[in-house]
Simulated assay, not measured.
Amino acid sequence: MKAIAIGADVSNNDVSTSKSLIENIEKDLYKLIDLGARNAALTNITGDDVVISAFVEDSLLETINQGIINILRDNAEDIGDVGGISDNPKTAGEGVSYAEAVIQQDRYPDAVILAFDTYGGEPFVGDAANSAIDAATGMKNLTDISNKIKDETKKIPGVGYVSNETDDPIVVATIEEIESVGIISSAMIGAALGNKNIYLVERGTPANIIPGSAILSATAFMNGNIIDLAIPFHQRTKILR
Rank of each mutant, 00 (worst) to 15 (best):
R203E: 05
G224P: 05
A3N: 08
A230D: 07
I156P: 04
G80F: 00
E57S: 15
L200K: 02
K140D: 15
E179M: 13
M1K: 08
P169I: 05
N223G: 15
K27C: 11
R236T: 12
D9E: 11
E122K: 02
V102N: 14
G160M: 04
K27T: 12
I210F: 12
D134M: 13
T237R: 09
I33K: 13
S11L: 05
G160I: 02
L35G: 07
L240P: 10
R241W: 10
N70I: 06
G158L: 03
A128G: 06
A136R: 01
A173Q: 03
V172F: 03
L32E: 03
N24I: 05
F233D: 08
L32S: 05
V10W: 00
A115E: 10
R38T: 13
I149M: 08
S86E: 07
I227Q: 10
A132L: 02
D9Y: 01
D74G: 13
I210V: 15
N88A: 06
K90I: 12
D48C: 11
E100M: 15
V112L: 07
I227R: 04
I149T: 10
N88Q: 09
D127C: 09
P206E: 09
R107E: 14
F124D: 11
Q235R: 14
T174S: 13
E176C: 07
N197C: 09
I198R: 02
D106H: 11
S163Q: 07
N24P: 02
N225E: 15
A135F: 00
T63D: 12
T137M: 12
R38D: 13
T91H: 09
S20C: 08
G138P: 04
F221S: 06
L193N: 02
E177A: 14
P123I: 06
R236D: 13
G83V: 07
I189N: 01
S180N: 12
I210C: 06
D28E: 15
K155E: 15
P232M: 05
N208T: 14
S185N: 06
G158C: 08
A218W: 00
L114R: 00
K196T: 12
D151Y: 13
D34E: 15
E177S: 12
G7H: 01
N164V: 10
A218Q: 01
K150A: 13
I25M: 04
K155V: 11
D48F: 03
D81W: 00
L21F: 02
G212H: 09
P89I: 03
I133M: 04
V181A: 07
Q235D: 15
G120A: 15
V82M: 08
P206S: 10
V125L: 05
P157Q: 07
A92V: 06
D34R: 11
S20H: 08
Y108T: 14
Q104C: 12
N130C: 10
I6K: 01
Y119A: 14
V51I: 11
A135E: 02
V125W: 00
Y98N: 09
A192R: 01
A5Y: 00
A111K: 00
L60G: 06
A173K: 00
I69Q: 05
G194H: 08
V181S: 03
S217Q: 10
G80Q: 03
N70P: 07
G47W: 00
L200W: 02
Y98W: 04
E202D: 14
E177R: 12
S59Y: 12
F221W: 03
S16D: 13
Y161P: 10
N65L: 04
